[in-house]
Amino acid sequence: MSPLKSSLKFLPALVLTLTGLALLVIGTRLGGRDAVFIKAVNLCMECIGLG
């Protein structure tokens, strides 16, 4: 397989990785990480089986 074809096999992974990074950055700027923080520092009653 030529080096170019070999590299193209990873193109979908590269596109998705960059898309994921972009969404991470956009999501963080829109307050997503802060929202995760607020959820994670409070005891999740559903998770521990208290409903």
Binding site: T17, G20, L23, I26, G27, L30, G31, R33, A35, V36
Partner: peptide, 25 residues
């Protein structure tokens, strides 16, 4: 699940981006 349950889909962008990144890598 917390993001989807709250209806705050901007929050879901962060988690979706995280899953896309780690999934793709």
């Amino acid at each position: 699940q917390a993001a989807l349950a709250s209806g705050n889909y901007k929050f879901a962008l962060y988690v979706t981006g995280f899953l896309l990144f780690f999934g793709a890598v």
